[in-house]
Amino acid sequence: MTAAYANPVLETPPKISVSITEACPHACAHCYSDCSAAPKPRELSIPAWREVLAKLADDGFIQVYFEGGEPFAKPGFLDLLEAVAPRMMTLVRTRGAGLDAAVADRLAAIRVGRVLVDLMGDDAASHDATAGAPGAFDSACTAIEECARRGIPVDALVVLTRRTAPRLNAILRLAHRLGAERVGILRLYPLGRAKRIWEEIALPLEAQMAAIASLDPPDGLGVMQSWHPRDQNCCWQAAALDAAGDIIGCQYLREYVNYGNILERSYLDAWRNDPLYRRIRSGNVEASCPDCSATQRSHGGCRSTAFAFHGRWEAPDPFDVTLNEGVDLAVLPDRLR
């Protein structure tokens, strides 16, 4: 029987994530968008994004988090950022490709709110092997340094895998040395190319928890992570668009939901009226971790990984030690192969 859990309720969402492109000069082994160097045919143009983002600001959105693909690889992205920044707090997630001193100057002039740079290793060999591009490590390091040098708040992001786990503390030290304020450690999602190499890179939950427990950040470096007791069901506040303008609620739900296209339906209409979107946000889940719900004010943990491993929207999140129920996170469910 389903217990009566409930997440906080927002009448309208204030923040949104936008995958501005699914093109990227890198070939990351675990790329969730299965990016290639060329943009996909349905991708929205910069003029279309300008109109979409102006309407989102009119509808009460006050923060936009751009990601990709590689945002800086999309021609016209900086002009778009410049148009958006006076009305919305802007954050950009990047692999660092193209973020050199000149682009950092422009970002500072635009007054971008925060830049988040993916690190896939603590040296060129480890990073470039996962990024699939020689020079990717140097680009990522340059991006962090150039942003930090100009006072642009910058975070590093690391996806926790078999490859990065032994290097986590070295990555923390590197990020700190380069000028990052914080490092976000992210779970690996069974999406895109990550599914094809899941058994090669995914860690069992016990090993993930051990890696998190072993973190030893340098003084002054913040660490963000969402393992127990911080496993949040953030769907209640999540809004997202993919590169084609499809309304997907959260970037990590990209392969599971589609609430319509932003060129045909307003975001608020989907938010208010789509039955599945409302259901996923509700927090009416089968089980809730008391420790995580106490710290996060939400129930059941991440809906993307819960759905991925169980095939049910109300299922428990197996990345939470109290909700795992014996699921081996190092093995992909047959459904996703």
């Binding site: 006050i62 923060q63 920044a85 006076p86 009305r87 919305m88 707090m89 802007t90 007054r111 971008v112 709110g113």
Partner: peptide, 9 residues
């Protein structure tokens, strides 16, 4: 409260 001059929310 978004302050575009300081890029802070």
């Amino acid at each position: 409260a978004y302050d575009p001059a300081r890029a802070r929310l």
